[in-house]
Each structure stands twice: as C-alpha cells, then as structure tokens.
C-alpha cells in the first residue's frame, strides 16, 4: 500500500473518530453526523479511487485522475471540518447562555441574601422598639402605682 493511501485511510479514520465522538461523547443530533459521515464516506471513496485508479478511473486521462482523487479527499475533509465548526459555534453559544443564566441566578441570590439580612435587621428594630415600648409602658404603669 502506498503512503498516500495510508494518509487517506488515516484521514478517513479521523473522520470516523469524529463521527463517533460526536455521536457518543458529545451526543449531538444525528443531522450533524451527516456531514462527517459523508466526509468519511468520501475519504473511503478517495481511498478506493486511489487504490483502484487504474480500474475505476480508466476512462479518464492520467492527468485528471489525481485531481478527482484530491477533490474527493478535500471534499471529505471539508465536510468533516464544517461539522466541527458548527459544533464549536453551537457550544460557544450554549456556554454564553449558561453564563448569562448563571449570572442572573447569582445576582438574584445575592439580592435574596441582602433582602434577608434587611428583613432580619427590621426584625431586630421591631424587637428593639418593642423593648422601648415595653419599658415606657412599665414606666407608665409604675407611675400609676406611685400616684
């Protein structure tokens, strides 16, 4: 096997790994797998065309054959790359959404704790004023007693 064939196979394998990663690890939707899947298929087509160029590309001239093979190979790689770009873009947007949600949640939690502490403070004032009220009432009742 020629080195070029090995390179094409490696690229094809990478594409398969990409599909598998997207499918198993990143759990993307199946539609997104179409492109890397198609890319992997194209890589295998490019491999087959390259390996069996004499049979499969016999009708075309020798000078056009590598062009076809390269085109198929690049098309496969492009499809794989596009799907990665789409995934990255989607991820970035998702992260920004999460961070926005997190920041809102954090702010609300902060306000909540502030409100709670204000509430406690008010409660404390109520108690203090209650004490003052009680004290004054005590003085007033003492006044009645000493009358």
């Amino acid at each position: 096997m020629e080195p070029f064939s090995i390179v094409i196979l490696i690229v094809a394998c990478v594409m398969i790994v990409e599909v598998l990663l997207l499918l198993v690890r990143l759990k993307v939707e199946k539609v997104l797998l179409l492109m890397p899947g198609a890319g992997a298929v194209l890589e295998f087509v490019a491999f087959a065309l390259y390996e069996y160029r004499d049979k499969l590309l016999s009708p075309v001239s020798e000078s056009v054959r590598p062009v076809i093979i390269y085109l198929v190979l690049v098309a496969g790689i492009v499809l794989g790359m596009i799907s990665i770009v789409i995934w990255l873009r989607g991820e970035r947007e998702a992260k920004s959404l999460i961070s926005a949600a997190k920041s809102i949640d954090g702010a609300v939690t902060r306000i909540e704790s502030e409100v709670q502490s204000s509430g406690m403070e008010i409660e404390h004032f109520d108690e203090e004023m209650g004490d003052i009220k009680k004290k004054i009432a005590d003085y007033e009742s003492r006044e009645k007693e000493v009358e």
Binding site: E91, I98, I104, D105, V108
Partner: peptide, 30 residues
C-alpha cells in the same frame, strides 16, 4: 444541517433562568 444545539446546556441554562425567575418573583414579594 448547519446548526448545533446543545440541549443539555440549554436545559441547564433554562433551569437556572427558571430558578432565578421564581426566586425573583418571590423576591419581589419579599
């Protein structure tokens, strides 16, 4: 074909936003 939506992330963000919203409603009352 050209879009990718991270459902888990969306769920997480939605949950956080929903929690924040509920808290906010409660907080408004508080």
């Amino acid at each position: 074909l050209l879009t990718y939506v991270n459902t888990a992330a969306i769920e997480e963000a939605r949950a956080k936003v929903e929690r924040a919203r509920k808290k906010l409603v409660e907080l408004k009352e508080t």
